[in-house]
């Protein structure tokens, strides 16, 4: 149930992470682990995809890996 989760996958939470520093998709998935949000893997991927499409973050390659970031 949502009340038992200690982490919520929301646009605001993703936005705050991406303003702080560039992150890969894997970095983001680590922040919103299914065991902490209570979401399934599929839900996590779908919700995160929708959020990233809305936020439309900047992208840059660091160490050959694509990172997302936002500026305030």
């Amino acid at each position: 149930t949502p009340s038992s989760s200690d982490v919520q996958l929301t646009e605001e939470a993703v936005r705050r992470y991406l303003i702080r520093k560039p992150m890969t998709t894997k970095d983001l998935l680590k922040k919103f682990q299914t065991k902490r949000t209570g979401l399934s893997s599929e839900q996590t991927v779908n919700v995160l995809a929708q959020i990233l499409k809305r936020l439309n973050p900047e992208r840059k390659n660091i160490n050959d890996k694509m990172h997302f970031y936002l500026t305030e």
Binding site: T24, T25, K26, L29, K30, S41, T44, V45, N46, L48, A49, L52, K53, R59, M66
Partner: peptide, 20 residues
């Protein structure tokens, strides 16, 4: 697990690639 995270990252990137 790590491999599940890899799979999720791959699925997420695949979904975003259509958009980017």
């Amino acid at each position: 697990s790590n491999s599940e995270e890899d799979e999720m990252a791959a699925a997420l990137e695949a979904e975003l690639n259509d958009f980017m």
